[in-house]
Design a protein around this nucleic acid. Structure first.
Length: 422
DNA sequence: TCTCCGATTAGAC
DNA sequence: CTAACGGTCTAATCGGAGA
């Protein structure tokens, strides 16, 4: 007989806000929100901010006034800080199991199957993350990833759980009762649209979904929903991924801090996007064969003329060379550009990505090595001294397009000067 | 008719 | 001072084009 799986989903509480508070303990009870890139939307809220009615994903300009009136502190996002702290959390978790899957910047699945005294170990894991990183987490345990996520939701919501909830500890009757009290859109993979369609079939709670007529579900919603149902029934359909698969596309795009009306400025931005996309490509040892360039006007400004062109360039030879790809990007930018529009956003996407190894045998391509060496040097410097130390093109108009970040905290973990005095 | 492809949709965070 | 809404990524599905 096989042992019941014990899958843990460890999720950091209000992650970005918790990161900011680590270095500002004086803000422990201050309502805080962290804003997305360009100070656009609220992407993380402290419990106090939630209690004051700030919604997840809410555009900042909508709640700015309310925030000021209620003394809510808003911070621009500081991704270098969050990535650093995320790595620390993940390494602590990795010590608890041979198999972990980092699912997102603030979430990790841990296969605890076979762990003795699971409850005690889970509390200890939570305690250790807190002690070693200062980040509070909740632990959800269940026989499948989907149920572990649900268990985590319960751990977060019910203070009595003290941060750990194990679905496997419930009797059948308790499971049915509990799932009957949770709305179906809390299920991993069921979002706004699907929950509406499910409601039309009378499926409103997680328990409804778990016990729904499978053939109907399959016919109406497809294979994914059927898997979700099986997972809710405790049958593992979604395994932990031990190694992260290579990216199939690399996107680098930004909204601009103010509208761009000059080709040279847009080209400057695109050269940075191209360089960043290529660096990610090289980091996973891949080549791309298709380059996609786009530029967008502000879709929220229906009073202004809209123009959202894009172009795909198939490369004669796959490459990860920033210089080669940037040449194409710059050329395409000229072709797409039209005067008279206010551009709000642009980006570079690399497609048709393959591992370098399968193509390295092309002896006809001259001088691959010198370009590879140059790229290695660029990546090395940028990793060591910070992104943008070496740039592909330094036309230097970035002040004209850089995103708005009026409220960013210092780089506490990467800059000694930023650490506040004790 | 089958297959491949691009576009669209839905979701996660 | 005013303005004016994120960024990546994946999988499934659908409809049309081409074999």
């Amino acid at each position: 007989m096989t042992m019941t799986r014990q899958i843990a989903l460890v999720d950091c509480n209000n992650f970005y806000v918790s990161c900011e508070r680590l270095f500002r303990p004086d803000l422990k009870t201050t309502p805080i929100v962290v804003l997305s890139n360009n100070d656009g939307c609220v992407v993380s809220r402290s419990n106090e901010a939630k209690a004051l009615g700030i919604r997840m994903g809410q555009p900042w300009f909508e709640c700015k006034q309310q925030a000021e009136e209620q003394g809510i502190l808003a911070l621009s996002s500081n991704y270098a800080l969050y990535a650093d702290l995320s790595n620390r959390v993940m390494s602590v978790l990795a010590e608890y199991a041979p198999l972990t899957e980092v699912y997102s910047i603030d979430e990790c699945f841990v296969d605890m199957t076979g762990t003795h005294k699971l409850r005690d170990v889970s509390y200890e894991m939570r305690q250790r993350v807190m002690q070693w990183t200062g980040i509070p987490v909740c632990v959800g345990l269940g026989p499948t990833k989907t149920l572990a996520k649900l268990a985590n939701h319960i751990a977060k919501k019910h203070p009595r759980s003290r941060g750990v909830f194990n679905y496997n500890d419930l009797t059948d009757a308790q499971q049915a009762k509990l799932l009957g009290q949770i709305a179906v859109d809390e299920v991993w993979g069921v979002g706004r649209k699907l929950s509406k369609r499910l409601a039309a079939l009378g499926i409103n709670t997680v328990q409804d979904l778990r016990t729904a007529h499978t053939p109907t579900l399959r016919a109406e919603f497809g294979v994914v929903m059927e898997k979700t149902q099986r997972e809710l029934q405790g049958v593992c359909c979604i395994e932990l991924e031990d190694c992260t698969p290579d990216k199939q596309q690399m996107v680098n795009s930004r909204s601009f801090g103010k509208p761009v009306t000059e080709l040279a400025v847009l080209q400057d931005a695109l050269s940075v996007f191209a360089a960043n996309a290529c660096q990610k490509l090289r980091a996973q040892n891949s080549h791309a064969a298709l380059v996609h360039v786009f530029m967008l006007t502000n879709r929220f400004r229906q009073d202004q003329p809209q123009y959202n062109p894009c172009m795909f360039v198939p490369l004669p030879m796959p490459t990860n060379d920033s210089l080669v790809i940037n040449r194409w990007v710059q050329h395409v930018a000229e072709l797409l550009w039209r005067d008279g529009y206010k551009y709000k956003k642009a980006g570079v996407v690399l497609h048709d990505i393959t591992p370098v190894s399968v193509l390295q045998a092309d002896w006809l391509e001259p001088d691959v090595t010198s370009s590879t060496r140059l790229m290695n040097a660029i990546d090395g410097l940028n990793t060591r001294f910070g992104r943008g130390t070496i740039k592909v093109s330094t036309s230097g108009r970035s002040d004209e397009w850089a995103m708005k970040q009026e409220r960013k905290s210092p780089n506490y973990t990467t800059d000694w000067h930023a650490v506040p005095a004790a």
